[in-house]
Nucleic acid binder design. Structure first.
Lengths: 224, 224
DNA sequence: CGCTCTATTTATAATTC
DNA sequence: TGAATTATAAATAGAGC
């Protein structure tokens, strides 16, 4: 038994563009999955490295979710008070920090500008290359043909000639193979075949509450 | 040189137990990697789903790191204004950090990141197009011809025929116009136009800095 | 640290129940 | 909604620079 019934049951995970998901439902689903994924990662980080973490997430719908280890309150307090607690110290610290942060931002700012410029340059380069390829490479169509220069048209003609030979050759192949080809192709796209089996190694992992910290799901009262 | 020296260069990723990493150095390395991984996930979540996220992480050494989209300040504010007692503390400390300059810089920073991201996406698009042009452009070449079915080959032959006519026609044009054409073409590349075909179904992916949000890495000692 | 590279382990997009 | 399943896309442990 079992047949050769191995048809793809799913296309597996697909790559997705890193941009806002327009479909509302899909976006919500993605949000749920990734939010829990994020919290899980946070949990692992805190466990593995003993880090203290606080996260607040507002869903696209505006619903707040939070994560905290040891607790969000703790993180918030440490966050706001500078850990030791005194408001005064916080003030002082804040000021100092302010300048440092500014400095850091400035540096990053400069760096970004540089990168941006480089990106622009690269873009021009690529566009040039594309243009060049259009002219030189394989087969432009119709209208484009009427823009070609002598050299281009000559070259193009050669390419065409070669292709024609290939086509003829292919024709023979097909004739020799007769109808078999049709039948074959009618069934399964032969090029799709895969090789390997492989195994989506899964593994259980905790699903609910993280060891030391806490998931404060939908509820999330503080700062809500 | 060269040898058949293909020995395993690494054992690949090893599974690790979900418990505190005792080796200090390993712990620190892990922290760095996973912190950036966490921030990246957060970035993706905010981009894909339009979520607003704020994260604060204290390294095992007590060093503070934060992430915020649109900005940590924003999250903090939305966070605090929800109104528990924390609001007071927030005003005291959080607001201090929020000098006007800083705010402005933050905005600009975000804008730059966005532009950079767009530039990157565009770049990937272009690169994809270039690649696609090589392989897939209008007419399949060589090997591909030998994969075609009867119908395909027939159709292809027709297209080729038409192209050939176009080419011939173009030949005549050129002969009539004589050398003028060369001079004209020497000036501007007329093919730059985009007409069309194809479209890089793909999408950029940033490699380093996150698009809309902000990584405030090592710098940023605020509230530490 | 911060990156790179490779081999694996994880996370998830798609789909189905 | 939520919980499986499956097939891939990503993250990352380990080892070096």
């Amino acid at each position: 038994m079992m047949m050769e019934r191995k048809k793809r049951q799913s296309m597996g995970r697909q790559k997705i563009a890193m941009k806002r998901i327009e479909n509302e439902e899909a976006r919500q689903v993605c949000f749920s999955k990734r939010r829990s994924g994020l919290f899980k990662k946070a949990t692992e980080l805190s466990i593995l490295c003993g880090a203290e973490i606080g996260i607040v997430v507002f869903s696209p719908a505006g619903k707040p979710f939070s994560f905290g280890h040891p607790s969000l309150d703790y993180i918030t307090r440490r966050f706001l008070s500078g850990g030791t607690g005194a408001a005064a110290a916080g003030q002082l610290c804040g000021m100092l920090v302010d300048s440092e942060k500014l400095h850091h931002l400035n540096e990053e700012h400069a760096g970004l500008l540089e990168k941006l410029e480089e990106a622009r340059r690269r873009r021009v380069e690529l566009e040039t290359e594309i243009a060049a390829q259009r002219v030189g490479s394989s087969l432009p169509c119709d209208m484009e043909v009427h823009e070609m220069s002598v050299e281009e048209i000559d070259n193009f003609q050669k390419v065409l000639e070669e292709l024609r030979r290939n086509v003829a050759s292919r024709h023979e192949e097909l004739q020799i193979q007769g109808m078999d080809m049709k039948m074959l192709r009618a069934g399964v796209p032969p090029l799709l075949s895969y090789g390997g089996g492989y195994l989506g190694g899964y593994n259980g992992f905790y699903l609910t509450s993280p060891p030391g910290g806490g998931y404060y799901d939908p509820g999330f009262p503080a700062w809500g």
